[in-house]
Simulated assay, not measured.
Amino acid sequence: MNRRNNMTDGRKTIGDNSFYYDLTRRITHDLKAPIRQISQLSEIILEDNADKLDEESLKSLIMMRERASTMAHLVNSVRSLSNAFLRELNMQQIELDCLLEEIEIDSKLPPNLLKIDNAPSIWTDPELFSIFFYNLFQNFFLPLGSGQIENASLKLNEDVHSSLGLMLRIPDFPLEIPNKMSLLELSTFARGDLLQSLAIIESSQLADRLGWKIFLHTNNNNELSMNLYL
C-alpha cells in the first residue's frame, strides 16, 4: 500500500511541477548551441594554431574545451532527467546485479565497484533506475571524488527490515556533509554550478517518484555514506 501511494504522489508531482520541467527543457535547449560552438571553436584553434600558442594560452584553451565538454554532458543529463520524470512508469521485477553491471559499464566506473554478492531482484522501473544512478555518479560523485571512487564500495544495508537498502561508501570525500542530508539538500553543495544543481535536484525528484528515500553524510574520517532505501 505504501509503495502504491508513493507512485500516486509521483504522478501528482508531475502536474505540480510542469512549469519547472518545461523551463528546464527550455534552458537546456538554449544552452546546447553556444556550448557546441565554444567546443568547436576551441578545437579548431588547437588544431590550426597549437604550435603558435605559448604554454599558458595552450593550457587555458584546453581547459576551456574540457569545461565546454563537461557543460554539454550536464545539459544532456538535465534533459534526460526531465524526460525520464515525465514519462510513464514501467515497473517490473528485475535482477539488481544486472542493472548495476550496466550502470558500471555506461558510467565508465572501476570494474566491480557496483558488484553485490547475492544481490536480490527488485521491483522498479529499470530505465529510471539506470538514469538515476548514472547521473548521480557522473554529475556529483565522479567530479568531486574522482580520486577516491576506485576505493568506493556498495553493499546491501542489513539494518533495514521493511525495504531493500543499499549503502554506498566513498573514502576521503572532499566535502563535509551533515548527518542525514537529503539528496535535494545536496544540490546546495554543487559549488555554484547551476546545471550540476539542476541535475541533482532532478535526481531527487526522480527518486521521490520511485518511492525511494536517500540520506547522505560524512563521518570523522571523511568517508561519505549514501543510504538508499528502495
Rank of each mutant, 00 (worst) to 15 (best):
residue 194 L to P: 09
residue 47 E to Q: 02
residue 125 D to W: 05
residue 158 E to S: 15
residue 104 E to L: 02
residue 131 I to F: 00
residue 156 L to N: 05
residue 141 F to R: 02
residue 132 F to N: 08
residue 21 Y to R: 03
residue 41 L to K: 05
residue 26 R to N: 05
residue 214 I to A: 06
residue 66 E to A: 10
residue 51 D to A: 13
residue 10 G to Q: 02
residue 147 G to Y: 08
residue 47 E to V: 02
residue 192 G to E: 12
residue 168 L to C: 10
residue 206 L to D: 01
residue 204 S to Y: 04
residue 211 G to N: 00
residue 73 H to K: 07
residue 114 L to K: 05
residue 41 L to I: 04
residue 93 Q to C: 06
residue 2 N to Y: 12
residue 191 R to Q: 15
residue 85 F to T: 06
residue 199 A to N: 05
residue 143 P to R: 02
residue 50 A to Q: 15
residue 102 E to H: 06
residue 213 K to T: 15
residue 145 G to I: 13
residue 29 H to Y: 04
residue 95 E to W: 04
residue 57 S to V: 00
residue 120 P to H: 00
residue 30 D to N: 08
residue 197 S to E: 06
residue 72 A to C: 07
residue 53 L to K: 04
residue 200 I to R: 09
residue 13 T to W: 05
residue 229 Y to I: 12
residue 130 S to F: 00
residue 142 L to Y: 15
residue 48 D to Q: 15
residue 183 L to W: 10
residue 190 A to Y: 06
residue 93 Q to H: 04
residue 197 S to Q: 00
residue 178 P to R: 13
residue 220 N to K: 14
residue 99 L to I: 10
residue 117 D to S: 08
residue 116 I to P: 07
residue 60 S to N: 13
residue 113 L to K: 04
residue 162 S to M: 03
residue 133 F to W: 14
residue 208 D to T: 08
residue 96 L to E: 06
residue 169 R to C: 12
residue 220 N to C: 13
residue 226 M to W: 08
residue 225 S to E: 15
residue 183 L to K: 07
residue 176 E to P: 06
residue 147 G to Q: 10
residue 76 N to G: 04
residue 198 L to P: 01
residue 23 L to S: 15
residue 35 I to V: 15
residue 57 S to M: 10
residue 23 L to W: 12
residue 34 P to V: 06
residue 103 I to F: 00
residue 224 L to N: 12
residue 219 N to M: 06
residue 87 R to Y: 01
residue 167 M to K: 12
residue 124 T to A: 07
residue 27 I to E: 13
residue 124 T to P: 02
residue 101 E to F: 00
residue 229 Y to M: 13
residue 76 N to V: 00
residue 119 A to L: 00
residue 201 I to E: 13
residue 148 Q to Y: 08
residue 103 I to T: 04
residue 175 L to C: 12
residue 97 D to I: 01
residue 116 I to Q: 07
residue 170 I to R: 09
residue 188 T to R: 13
residue 214 I to S: 11
residue 108 K to I: 02
residue 92 Q to P: 01
residue 149 I to T: 06
residue 102 E to I: 05
residue 208 D to E: 08
residue 143 P to L: 02
residue 91 M to P: 00
residue 35 I to G: 10
residue 72 A to H: 06
residue 228 L to N: 08
residue 118 N to P: 04
residue 130 S to G: 04
residue 172 D to M: 08
residue 8 T to K: 09
residue 32 K to Y: 07
residue 12 K to I: 11
residue 204 S to G: 11
residue 33 A to F: 07
residue 180 K to M: 14
residue 8 T to E: 08
residue 58 L to T: 11
residue 92 Q to D: 08
residue 169 R to D: 15
residue 108 K to M: 03
residue 71 M to C: 14
residue 58 L to Q: 14
residue 204 S to E: 10
residue 158 E to Y: 12
